[in-house]
Design a protein around this nucleic acid. Structure first.
Lengths: 208, 208
DNA sequence: ATGAAACATGAACCAGTATTCATGTATCAT
DNA sequence: ATGATACATGAATACTGGTTCATGTTTCAT
């Protein structure tokens, strides 16, 4: 019942137009992927529709067959980034019983991900201005999952007691900034070293 | 000698025009402060010169008496933000002998600062796209200072040994994200609590 | 085959806005 | 007083770039 209504008037969003053919599907993907590269490289404002479509190898008007607005393609990228990151980390920590080990695996996976997708990484930051809602969703979803994980680990006695919400944000911040050091500031330090130092900090702190 | 040359051709930057009168000084400040509010609120692109000047209570042309370009006023804001933050933290940690205590004082000062200047905080993030150079300078300067402090504390045996560079970035990330939680996500958690939890994490880690 | 739906094109439209400029007005040293 | 310099104005300029549209072309069910 709730489902049938959603089709006619799109309870949540009018997504431009969804392709109905394999050809359309391919074109839409081409545009989306071009947008990722172009926006990631030049930023939202300097990335014109013309740039994006020419990178995708289609005419300018084609863009508006699949996206109703420039902002929409951006939002979609942010959403996709969120799903990808969470999926990547979930996969990497799958089956790791010890939380401290899971932290290490998660941090490693995250840093590898941002190295593989430097564009997407920058895009999320710009969302704070271009699409604040997407930005909030991105971080709040991530933080909520993180917090739940920490709380479970506390119950299990795998980590010390503490304010899981603040911890979640703080740990997220560590990953974020270390990722930025890699991608934005182009550090050549190997990921394994960064993870080792970062993880030691997370586990033991800095007290003598 | 070095000075006299600097005047004619500005070795470092042509700062639009520096005012030479108290009146000019005041106008320039008014524009800069209006720019902070407007850009902070609407973002760089949606903040037009018209918005800024009308907020400042001057005509549009007046802007170009003091700034040669829209980007320049932005850069100046980022630079100012950097100086302000570093100054604020330096002041707060002044004379605190123990590094662990200094961390707490610094984190508190930082969070209080971002609460007092939410606009400036957002502006720095946007610099990644609008003025990447200013962005890099901001974080690298901050990180370098942080790292030096950590290294000194290590020598003094006040904190454990570890990769000071990575630690500096990680700790910066904690402050950054906790500040964001406050300002962007409007958490109502009192700063003292956030600091307590964050500081405990920094000092002791999360191991059981 | 064939008509309709989906897809594609790129030139034209148009709104917004950064920047310039010709024309004033205030301030101050002499 | 008076000329010079700093400061202020706001309309005009110039250009960018998102979006639309009239016109094709491809795909596919029947």
């Amino acid at each position: 019942m709730a489902k049938s209504a959603g089709e006619a008037k799109a309870t949540l969003k009018p997504p431009g137009n969804q392709p109905k053919t394999a050809r359309g599907e391919a074109t839409r993907k081409a545009i989306l992927s071009a947008a990722e590269r172009v926006i990631g490289a030049k930023g939202y404002n300097d990335a014109s529709i013309g740039h994006i479509t020419s990178e995708a190898g289609v005419a300018q008007g084609t863009f508006y067959i699949y996206f109703s607005t420039k902002e929409q393609v951006f939002s979609e990228l942010v959403l996709e980034m969120g799903r990808l990151v969470r999926h990547t980390i979930a996969e990497a920590t799958q089956g790791v019983e010890d939380r401290l080990e899971a932290e290490k695996a998660g941090l490693t996976a995250f840093l590898e991900f941002v190295c593989a997708h430097p564009d997407l990484y920058r895009i999320v930051q710009e969302a704070l201005f271009v699409d604040p809602h997407a930005y909030r969703v991105y971080y709040q979803t991530f933080a909520a999952g993180y917090q739940a994980g920490l709380e479970a680990a506390q119950e299990a006695g795998q980590i010390s007691k503490g304010d899981a919400e603040t911890r979640a944000w703080a740990l997220m911040g560590i990953g974020r900034t270390l990722g930025e050091q890699l991608v934005v500031f182009k550090s050549d330090k190997p990921i394994s070293e960064i993870v080792a130092s970062g993880h030691d900090l997370i586990v033991n702190g800095i007290k003598p």
